[in-house]
Amino acid sequence: MLIVSAQKAVGEILDPKMRQVFWKTLGLTILALIIIWNLVTAGLETFAVPFISEWFASFSLPDWTGTMGLFAAIFAGLGLAVGLAFLIGPVSAVIAGLFLDDVAEHVESQDYPNDKAGTAMPLGRSIIMSVKFFGIVILGNMFALMLLLVPGVNLIAFFAVNGYLLGREYFEFAAMRHHDVETVRMLRSRYSGTIIMGGLMIACFLAIPIVNLLTPLFGAALMVHLHKAIASKAQITQ
């Protein structure tokens, strides 16, 4: 059930409809990062660099003031670049969260044309879902950075935490299109192991730079297929 769902999801990532969602997500992500870069750069130039220069000047080291200001600007720029690289995954997850219904509708209409179409999330719930995905991806990326410090332990923690959180959130997204909250909770509880394993597959995408941009598309497609299989096995009307 899980392997078949994953194979279908991977096969659909490069589908023309999915590519449209990806390019929209990528374009808006780049725009958002440019805006963040300009805002943070303006803030650093206005406040941080002058503060450091004045701080060194207070030690009566005028010859060093300009040099340290230059070093401060360079290190601030490098730190900002690293920070933006860290934000690529989370920002794209927020933006992609607004288009997950497009992915779900495409998968359902293409692979389950005889089933009742799911109900798209209201805009407010879609925004809330995007924010939740943002928090999850931030957490996942923090663990990914920690892998550099303590190999092994944090690798396990990364996949354990993200397997649970990503599986839960993406499954709820797919299932809530068809069922009420109580039914979704029942399915999630009864098939928690399968859903967590699906989350681990999504976490694998999240852990790979560049590939992690595809995480929302793969996650949504995977859980649409997995929900269909689980609901069918549980003999619940969809």
Rank of each mutant, 00 (worst) to 15 (best):
160 A>T: 12
38 N>G: 15
12 E>D: 15
120 A>Y: 00
166 L>H: 03
146 M>Q: 09
122 P>E: 05
167 G>M: 00
22 F>I: 11
135 G>W: 01
45 E>R: 09
36 I>Q: 04
32 A>R: 01
60 S>H: 14
35 I>Q: 01
198 G>K: 01
43 G>C: 04
17 K>T: 14
34 I>R: 02
127 I>S: 05
176 M>E: 07
200 L>Y: 10
192 S>K: 11
169 E>N: 10
67 T>A: 06
206 L>N: 10
77 G>S: 13
131 V>N: 00
38 N>F: 15
24 K>T: 08
48 A>P: 05
60 S>K: 13
50 P>W: 03
148 L>M: 15
18 M>L: 08
218 F>S: 08
27 G>P: 06
50 P>K: 06
145 L>S: 08
212 N>F: 00
1 M>Q: 08
93 A>L: 03
43 G>A: 10
213 L>G: 13
106 H>V: 07
52 I>T: 09
54 E>F: 13
148 L>W: 14
126 S>Q: 12
168 R>K: 15
26 L>W: 07
207 A>P: 00
152 G>P: 06
217 L>F: 05
38 N>S: 15
110 Q>A: 14
46 T>K: 14
164 Y>D: 09
189 S>A: 15
61 L>I: 10
100 L>S: 01
146 M>S: 11
147 L>C: 05
42 A>E: 11
190 R>M: 09
118 G>R: 02
34 I>A: 10
61 L>D: 07
146 M>V: 11
5 S>E: 00
91 V>W: 05
182 E>V: 09
18 M>W: 00
79 G>H: 04
28 L>N: 04
231 A>P: 10
